[in-house]
């Protein structure tokens, strides 16, 4: 048999689908890290605020994390564009649609990954504008210790420091950059009912997207061996419930039980 297929590495549908799986599963891994990081928001008091803001400094300054964050941005873009290309190709495969459709044998999520993904993307843009863009480029409040001193990026309260262009100065000496108070931005955002509603409701499409996507990723990569796949399937369902629920809890606690965080 002669090899007649003249495909580039990413030309074929299966290769494109494998790219979807790889980026998708990487994003699943990111969700775990992101959720565990964000759950620090629920630590009450000044120590919680300090821990979360220190974590934000670490996530934006540690070189390895910076590299991973660029891989993450790239993964999101690839996942979206690849999905778009695949959806267009797949739509073209059926030019005349059925009059009656049953959807038998497939889940709601599996048939609507594009719509669910689009909803997640809209949420993502809003989410990045709310926090990521603000933290990196916008006007930010700065961290102040209970004694009323500004706090350095290392988390030390510096008595008598004056804030000038993001740096702390004591008697004309630069003591380094001040710690931005991302926690405060989160607290203010999650005090608004419409933001809380959007954040909580957006976790529903995320859950459905994960319910199909998690196990589908393994299937696409060919990682399906007998009974082990049932474990992956159950893990996928648990993942699709636990992760969105974990994220949804944060705005709900901030909105309904702010006193618990003091």
């Amino acid at each position: 048999m002669e090899l007649r297929a003249q495909h580039g590495l990413l030309k074929s549908l299966v290769a494109k689908k494998i790219l979807m799986a790889l980026t998708g599963l990487f994003l699943c891994l990111f969700l775990v890290v992101h959720l565990s990081g964000n759950l620090q928001l629920l630590i009450p008091g000044y120590s919680g605020r300090l821990q979360f803001n220190s974590y934000a400094v670490f996530m934006t300054h540690f070189p390895l994390i910076k590299i991973i964050s660029y891989v993450l941005y790239l993964s999101i873009i690839i996942h979206v564009l690849d999905a778009l290309v695949l959806t267009i190709r797949n739509r073209r495969a059926r030019t005349v649609d059925y009059a009656v459709k049953s959807g038998y044998g497939s889940t709601f999520a599996s048939r609507n990954m594009g719509i669910l993904g689009s909803l997640i993307l809209i949420f993502l843009v809003l989410h990045l504008a709310n926090f990521w863009y603000k933290y990196k480029f916008g006007e930010m409040p700065y961290m102040v210790s209970p004694e009323g001193h500004y706090v350095s990026q290392k988390g030390e309260a510096i008595p008598g420091a004056v804030l000038k262009e993001g740096h702390l100065w004591v008697d004309g000496v630069d003591k380094g950059p001040a710690m931005k108070d991302l926690y405060e931005v989160v607290r203010l955002a999650f005090g608004q009912s419409w933001i809380v509603a959007i954040y909580v409701l957006s976790m529903i499409p995320l859950g459905y997207h994960l319910a199909h996507g998690f196990q589908s990723g393994f299937q696409t990569l060919g990682l399906r061996f007998g009974k082990a796949f049932s474990v992956i399937r159950v893990a996928g369902w648990l993942f699709a419930i636990i992760i969105p629920l974990g994220f949804a809890i944060i705005p709900l606690v901030f909105y309904f039980f702010p006193e618990k965080l003091n």
Binding site: R4, L13, L86, A93, S106
Partner: peptide, 22 residues
């Protein structure tokens, strides 16, 4: 590789693991 390439040439779509076929 040959069979997949031919499948695409014929205008069939790609798999999204919905499981309807099975």
């Amino acid at each position: 590789l040959n069979m997949l390439s031919q499948m695409e040439k014929e205008g069939f779509g790609g798999c999204t693991n919905t499981g309807a076929c099975e």
